[in-house]
Amino acid sequence: MITASLVTFHTKPSDLLRLIECVLKSNISIFYIIDNSSNDSLREYSKISDKIKYIHSQNLGFGHGHNIALKMALEQGAKYHAIINPDIYWNDNVIEELTSFMDKNIDCGQVMPKILYPDGETQLLCKLMPTPMHLIGRRFIPIKSIKQKIDVKYELHNSGYNRIMEVPILSGCFMFVRMNVVKKVGLFDERFFMYSEDVDFCRRIGEVSKTMFYPNVAVYHEYEKGSYKNKKLLKYHMSSTIKYFNKWGWIFDKRRTEVNRKCLNQIKSFLK
């Protein structure tokens, strides 16, 4: 069984309907909508299909919302689960392709397809395990050339984003995970209200399995980068970043060094 979840917060009905249409055309058996909005006006969309399960929840964060769905998916005996942002949509058999890839690669705990902007440009969402410079420094560096140099390495630009590869950190906008691995590593860390919870989750999955980028299929992501425009979201972002490094280490993080070196060596081998 394949399940999926969406956490909404006053999501535009047009975005929700677009995603529901994608889900219903796929082999997803149950689609959990966890609504963190102040009202339950989105409940009516659960009437579209028996596959849709709507839960109105107190807004305790992105991770908390998806944990509600993950717990129910575990109870249902789901084999795979897709964690999807409201601004995601796709045209092809993405879920089926990712399912086939996971079935053939049992050492893979998480896979991410290619992520595209609506105009078809690739979003550079494959990343190294972050250092403070990656999550804090590059945000505030005023010199564009220095920031770009950091981004080239951190976002794995030299990989070309055109081949299957093992990547330390995959974006939380679309996470396709193996539920047996989730049982091992646990759910989202709810200390992160918003931001960095996906980095932490992907890192823990990577401790016991592979986290893979699979560019043979793609989804579209509108990707607004809210914390770059909204001071409240920036505050959440910075708070979560501090919590992340307090948990895993600011300067000394042996595992980070090892994993990033392995990834960069993999990319070097592509270029030979």
Score class of each variant (00 low, 15 high):
residue 139 R to G: 06
residue 202 C to G: 01
residue 23 V to A: 04
residue 67 N to G: 01
residue 170 L to F: 03
residue 126 C to F: 08
residue 118 P to G: 11
residue 256 R to I: 08
residue 166 E to W: 06
residue 198 D to C: 01
residue 94 V to D: 08
residue 80 Y to T: 00
residue 124 L to P: 02
residue 248 W to D: 08
residue 145 S to M: 12
residue 30 I to D: 08
residue 76 Q to A: 09
residue 161 Y to F: 14
residue 121 E to I: 10
residue 35 D to I: 01
residue 223 Y to G: 02
residue 26 S to Y: 03
residue 34 I to H: 01
residue 200 D to L: 10
residue 256 R to H: 11
residue 157 H to D: 11
residue 87 D to K: 13
residue 172 G to F: 00
residue 162 N to P: 08
residue 158 N to T: 09
residue 141 I to P: 01
residue 148 Q to A: 08
residue 42 L to V: 03
residue 169 I to A: 04
residue 145 S to I: 14
residue 20 I to M: 02
residue 186 G to M: 05
residue 93 N to Y: 11
residue 31 F to C: 05
residue 238 M to T: 15
residue 10 H to D: 15
residue 218 A to L: 02
residue 255 R to Y: 13
residue 40 D to A: 11
residue 238 M to I: 15
residue 108 C to V: 15
residue 12 K to A: 14
residue 165 M to Y: 04
residue 21 E to Y: 11
residue 212 M to R: 03
residue 264 L to C: 12
residue 220 Y to I: 15
residue 116 L to A: 13
residue 103 D to V: 10
residue 7 V to M: 05
residue 52 I to P: 01
residue 124 L to D: 11
residue 179 M to A: 09
residue 185 V to N: 03
residue 107 D to M: 09
residue 10 H to S: 13
residue 272 K to M: 10
residue 157 H to W: 14
residue 25 K to G: 08
residue 254 K to D: 05
residue 66 H to Y: 12
residue 266 Q to C: 10
residue 268 K to D: 12
residue 198 D to Y: 00
residue 202 C to T: 14
residue 140 F to S: 10
residue 154 Y to C: 01
residue 217 V to F: 06
residue 265 N to H: 09
residue 78 A to G: 06
residue 250 W to Y: 15
residue 205 I to Q: 00
residue 89 Y to G: 12
residue 143 I to Q: 10
residue 91 N to P: 00
residue 63 G to S: 14
residue 11 T to L: 02
residue 93 N to I: 07
residue 262 K to S: 12
